[in-house]
């Protein structure tokens, strides 16, 4: 029940974030979506994810506020307004229709299959020495995924430094 309320709140806040004219207000509304997601993670018993989501959300807000500070622009609606909106809504409608039939095939909410994870749960504490199964899976059973994550983070940081560099770019030289 709490999950339904939180999800409806998240949909409402996401719609406000998309439709708000002021960029700063829409960034704050996106923060509301993220913190509601943090609460939802707590309700579905995922405390590690809730902590990570909290930190990531605060960093997201700081970066986005830095980007939109003093740069408020009026929303320009011109051209093929009706065509664009109708095309987007039709696409979303088709997506929702097919996802309705696809979601029926999934196991019911609250009764997961848990086939892969049974072995982890039996042997996890003995093999990895970690009482927290999530960190056991992330850092031991699936350590190569974590290595790939670190590589992706490193590539993203190099990309940010390259895009935002001051020395060597043409616009700053002249």
């Amino acid at each position: 029940m709490e999950l339904y309320i939180l999800l409806i709140f998240m949909i409402f806040a996401a719609f406000v974030a998309i439709e708000m004219k002021d960029l700063f207000s829409s960034v704050i509304a996106m923060g509301a979506v993220g913190f509601a997601l943090c609460l939802a993670f707590l309700i579905v018993k995922a405390p590690d994810l809730a902590i990570t989501q909290l930190v990531v959300e605060i960093l997201c807000l700081i970066i986005l506020i830095r980007a939109t500070m003093n740069k408020d622009l009026p929303l320009v609606i011109e051209g093929r307004w009706v065509f664009n909106t109708m095309a987007t809504l039709i696409f979303a409608g088709v997506f929702l229709f097919f996802s309705y039939w696809a979601l029926k095939e999934l196991p019911n909410f609250g009764e997961p299959l848990m086939t892969v994870v049974r072995k982890y749960m039996e042997e996890g504490a003995d093999k990895t020495g970690s009482v927290n199964l999530v960190t056991g899976v992330v850092l031991d059973f699936r350590a190569y995924d974590t290595l790939g994550e670190a590589a992706a983070l490193f590539a993203a940081v190099i990309g940010i430094v390259t895009v935002l560099r001051k020395t060597g770019s043409k616009s700053h030289d002249k």
């Binding site: 990531v56 997961p112 994870v117 999530v134 993203a156 895009v163």
Partner: peptide
């Protein structure tokens, strides 16, 4: 116990999403 495997995979994906968003904001 709830299923820890999706939680472990989503933990990776959340951090990646932060990096992707920072790169987009830089651009």
């Amino acid at each position: 116990m709830v299923d820890p495997l999706p939680q472990a995979l989503v933990l990776t994906s959340i951090v990646i999403s932060l990096a992707v968003m920072a790169l987009l904001i830089a651009i």
